[in-house]
Nucleic acid binder design. Structure first.
Lengths: 123, 123
DNA sequence: ATGCACTTTAGAGTACACTCTAATGCAAGA
DNA sequence: TCTTGCATTAGAGTGTACTCTAAAGTGCAT
């Protein structure tokens, strides 16, 4: 199945500018073109973009995404890809801890506010 | 307890540049000065910076942090502060979902790699 | 009092990740 | 064939969040 840049933009919610920028920067592999030079994205490209967005959103660095994009069509690079993903998994776990700490700090504030308001009612 | 900008930089791991920038931008309230104009941070300032870093790191927008910093010494603003923090709590929960989705996508990749490597051994 | 390591400020510079512009070309319906 | 609406590119511009520079002042040990 093939897609125009417009369709991919709609499906990924990335602007056309961003899609072109990602290709220029090497975050996605070189996209096939039709005879007029228009981009033709295929299923694999869409799949990669979908995955890229998930891991990018959770903080995978641009450099790592470029690296992954460069090696992802070579079966010999599976060990390296595993390593990258394992590292990112550790990063996600650290983020989960940060979120929990932030949540705890917020709940502590709520308790403080409860206390202040309880005292003001006592008067 | 009072602290110099140097001590606060060490305690918060923010650079002195950043600490001055946060004050200029209103992310922290105006810091007291000694007779020479040097900043003197107190316990409250440190407490706010510690909290700010936790929620900033989990994506609370700068504008919201500025707002919070502006109202946080007025007890009448507790309901507004509660509202801000409740909204951020929702945001954190959404991020937790994103992290989980990213984690699931990574585990799917691992399974795919296992499959490919299993098949190559079978030959 | 001299030196050195701090501090201050306004404002300039940087890095990142887009975001857009301008010039140009292709596709297709009236 | 003309017009409208797509596409292409190189390269310029934007917004955010710092990060640093330059010039000047302060504190304190030698």
């Amino acid at each position: 199945m093939n897609y125009s840049i417009n369709e991919i933009s709609r499906l990924t919610k990335l602007s056309k500018y961003t899609l072109r920028y990602y290709e220029k920067e090497g975050l996605v592999p070189k996209i096939k073109r039709n005879s007029s030079g228009y981009r033709i994205y295929d299923e694999k490209d869409l799949e990669w973009l979908t995955f890229l967005l998930k891991v990018k959103e959770t903080g995978m660095p641009i450099q790592t995404l470029k690296r992954f994009s460069r090696i992802m069509f070579n079966p010999k690079t599976i060990p390296e890809r595993r390593k990258i993903l394992l590292e990112h998994k550790q990063h996600i776990i650290q983020q989960q801890e940060k979120l929990q700490k932030s949540l705890d700090a917020i709940d502590k504030k709520f308790k403080k506010y409860d206390e202040i308001q309880r005292k003001s009612i006592e008067l």
